[in-house]
């Protein structure tokens, strides 16, 4: 079991309120991702759940039981840190066995669980090495190994992949997702990378300045962002947000249209514009078009074969069913 509930939890450092009172329920077995810009309080929120930081107000409940004042070790949660936080003077085996040793398990049990974890994580060949002799990805796996041997009620990850290179990140992303499918344990995952959030999460929690902007499945957030912040944050490349006369025509303060929901044509369309930079990714091409609709260039996503030379005159047309409308407070208009 691993249901976590935050009730009116708040956190201040001195006079600075980093997290205003906030409610959140993380269901058992869910993969929840906290996402938001740097400094928005994701790590702080995770550390409040872990018990590494005391709440200023409110309650933390784990499996329905009051855990606000419980020490970290007794909460049954395991954490994987951004810096991995491996114990440098211990071998991989000892690192993974450390929580078991602290729990007073006998040697045979320890060995069995370590061997099992090592197999799952492909670490068997490295058990006798020191962390300093491992690559970033391997260190990450050791950190995960140290978390899984405890058989925790939930895993907490704080930007575990941010120190890895792009290729490795994709691989580890899949491995963690697979681990979740297999263990079916609750995972809370912090990242500022919305691609990680979209690909891994069952439920995404978008945070800004300590406030929850929206909670929902990746598709919900993509299809029905609750406000302009979420609209701009989720999706890559970013949604085009257009203010002014074009928005007023549709009875909104701001309209949003994703790059993939724009048609680009040389002959006809709603907005006339000039092609600026084109980014060819092979599978897709992104055109940055300076148009009559807004002072900022509009990003358009087209198939890889499409090409326009710099400065070409084009027409853009948004697909009406994919237009998002927002009022002057930035909130979604249905």
């Amino acid at each position: 079991m691993g249901q976590i509930e935050l009730k009116q939890v708040s956190k201040s450092f001195g006079n600075v309120e980093v997290i205003p009172p906030l409610d959140l329920i993380i269901e058992d077995g869910e993969f929840v991702v906290f996402v938001g810009p740097s400094g928005c309080g994701k790590s702080t929120l995770l550390r409040l759940i872990a018990g590494l930081e005391d709440v200023t107000g409110g309650h933390v409940l784990i499996d329905g039981k009051e855990a606000t004042l419980t020490v970290p070790a007794k909460r049954g949660l395991a954490m994987v840190f951004q810096s991995y936080a491996l114990y440098p003077h211990m071998s991989v085996r000892k690192n993974i066995a450390f929580p078991l040793r602290m729990a007073g398990l006998d040697k045979a049990d320890q060995n069995e669980r370590v061997t099992q974890a090592a197999e799952v994580l492909n670490l068997t060949d490295y058990l006798d090495r020191k962390p300093g002799q491992l690559s970033g990805g391997q260190r990450q796996r050791v950190a995960i190994g140290r978390a899984i041997v405890r058989e925790p009620a939930a895993f907490l990850f704080d930007e575990p992949l941010s120190n890895l290179d792009a290729a490795l990140r994709v691989g580890m992303r899949l491995e963690i997702s697979e681990l979740h499918k297999r263990l079916k344990t609750t995972m809370v995952y912090v990242t500022h990378d919305q691609v990680e959030a979209m690909t891994m999460a069952d439920k995404i929690v978008v945070l800004q300045a300590g406030v929850i902007e929206q909670v929902g499945s990746p598709l919900e957030l993509y299809q029905r962002p609750r406000n302009t912040f979420v609209a701009g944050f989720i999706g890559s490349p970013q949604m085009n947000l257009i203010d002014g006369p074009e928005a007023e025509k549709l009875g909104a303060h701001t309209i949003g249209i994703r790059p993939e929901h724009l048609e680009i044509s040389q002959t006809e369309g709603a907005w006339k514009g000039k092609v600026g930079v084109s980014e060819h990714l092979g599978s897709d091409t992104f055109f940055h078009v300076q148009s009559s609709a807004s002072p900022e260039p509009i990003t358009v996503r087209a198939t890889g074969e499409r090409a326009f030379h710099y400065g070409a005159e084009v027409w853009l047309s948004p697909r009406p069913e994919h237009l998002h409308r927002f009022d002057s407070k930035g909130l979604r208009i249905e």
């Binding site: 590494l52 970290p72 395991a78 954490m79 936080a85 114990y87 211990m90 140290r146």
Partner: peptide
């Protein structure tokens, strides 16, 4: 590294164990 101590704390190491297994070797 503070995170090492926090990791040990989460791993269930009490004050004495953190001293013996993390701080002293460091």
């Amino acid at each position: 590294d503070r995170e090492q101590l926090e990791a040990a704390e989460m791993d269930g190491a009490r004050w004495q164990s953190r001293f013996i297994y993390i701080m002293l070797p460091h």
